[in-house]
Amino acid sequence: MAKIIISAFLCLAMFGSLAQAAAGACREANGTAPVAGSCDAYIECKNGVAEEKLCPDGLLYNEKSTGYPCSYPIDVECTQPQARLQAAQPTDECPHQFGYYRMGDASHCGQFMNCAAGRGFVFDCPEGLAWNPATYKCDWPDQVEDCDAEAFLGFRCPPLAPKSDLLGEQEQDYTFHPSQENCQVYFICIEGRPRRIGCGEDQAFNQELNQCDDIDNVPNCSSDIRAKGAEIKAARASAAAGRRKLN
């Protein structure tokens, strides 16, 4: 009988110490906490009971999240010393199970892939913009470190006129240039690197104003572009007239 009592006491003591250890990992009864030395592992606490979990491959534990505790690396500042990560789980389409990845080389910067559970979904940036892996956004190509803006846009900025002590500083460090292929497109050169700007469907680039203008004020547009612009303006005018009648 004494042995049974002692054994029961030892079991209770062991269970109590384990419960205290689990509870010690929990700062609150319900919530999450980081794991020392890891950026993608975390402690999940439910009713004071702690369980170590791992974020899906490609995501990191986000201590600041108020919902799902795993986020893309751009949203997480992992300051764990000698932080370790789980081994990558690549597929035929993706380098990690989750993440955003640019496609193409330095002259083809406008596509990116979103990987979700190992499946890759390809997206195109709006025309003239490049995928920026530093911000997870489509950006001006001259702002993307590994994008060759000139090759990507098919336009090379002419050299700026040399500065002269007699003439003083140049008035502008950017210049405007029409597209030779499309009157509704122009380029702005900033510090010698181009950005592509598109006008509205019923507008075109006016070289005298250095901005988009009514297509009727731009004589160098083709007849097809003019006809399309006139059609769009007529449709808008008809829609506006219909709204006025309803009011």
Results as ranks from 00 to 15, higher is better:
residue 69 P to N: 12
residue 82 Q to N: 15
residue 84 R to F: 04
residue 81 P to T: 01
residue 164 S to P: 06
residue 63 E to N: 13
residue 144 V to I: 00
residue 131 W to A: 05
residue 87 A to E: 15
residue 149 A to C: 00
residue 70 C to D: 06
residue 92 D to Q: 14
residue 60 L to S: 09
residue 72 Y to W: 07
residue 148 D to L: 03
residue 128 G to I: 03
residue 177 H to R: 04
residue 87 A to K: 07
residue 155 F to H: 07
residue 173 D to A: 03
residue 150 E to T: 11
residue 97 Q to S: 10
residue 91 T to W: 04
residue 86 Q to T: 13
residue 146 D to C: 03
residue 125 C to D: 10
residue 116 A to K: 15
residue 66 T to M: 08
residue 147 C to K: 02
residue 181 E to T: 15
residue 114 N to C: 05
residue 154 G to K: 02
residue 74 I to F: 14
residue 128 G to Q: 07
residue 63 E to V: 11
residue 108 H to F: 13
residue 156 R to V: 15
residue 161 A to H: 04
residue 65 S to H: 10
residue 128 G to D: 06
residue 99 G to C: 13
residue 137 K to V: 01
residue 97 Q to M: 14
residue 170 Q to R: 14
residue 96 H to K: 15
residue 98 F to G: 09
residue 77 E to Q: 13
residue 179 S to I: 15
residue 66 T to Q: 10
residue 179 S to M: 14
residue 106 A to N: 12
residue 138 C to M: 02
residue 122 V to H: 13
residue 157 C to V: 10
residue 173 D to V: 00
residue 107 S to P: 01
residue 177 H to A: 09
residue 170 Q to G: 14
residue 152 F to N: 03
residue 153 L to E: 14
residue 167 L to S: 13
residue 149 A to S: 14
residue 146 D to K: 04
residue 109 C to H: 05
residue 123 F to R: 05
residue 180 Q to G: 13
residue 171 E to L: 14
residue 62 N to K: 06
residue 60 L to Q: 13
residue 182 N to M: 08
residue 106 A to P: 02
residue 174 Y to E: 15
residue 64 K to P: 06
residue 165 D to T: 11
residue 76 V to L: 05
residue 128 G to S: 08
residue 74 I to K: 11
residue 150 E to Q: 08
residue 76 V to H: 06
residue 99 G to D: 09
residue 152 F to W: 03
residue 127 E to R: 09
residue 113 M to Y: 04
residue 107 S to N: 09
residue 109 C to N: 10
residue 95 P to C: 08
residue 133 P to V: 02
residue 60 L to T: 00
residue 148 D to T: 03
residue 174 Y to A: 04
residue 135 T to K: 11
residue 69 P to K: 12
residue 116 A to Y: 11
residue 61 Y to N: 05
residue 109 C to D: 07
residue 145 E to K: 04
residue 85 L to V: 03
residue 153 L to Q: 11
residue 97 Q to W: 01
residue 137 K to L: 09
residue 149 A to V: 03
residue 123 F to L: 07
residue 168 G to V: 09
residue 108 H to M: 08
residue 65 S to P: 07
residue 119 R to H: 11
residue 123 F to D: 02
residue 98 F to V: 13
residue 100 Y to S: 02
residue 165 D to W: 12
residue 154 G to L: 00
residue 68 Y to P: 09
residue 164 S to R: 01
residue 82 Q to Y: 13
residue 79 T to V: 12
residue 92 D to H: 10
residue 133 P to E: 00
residue 173 D to S: 14
residue 127 E to Q: 09
residue 76 V to P: 11
residue 135 T to G: 04
residue 126 P to E: 08
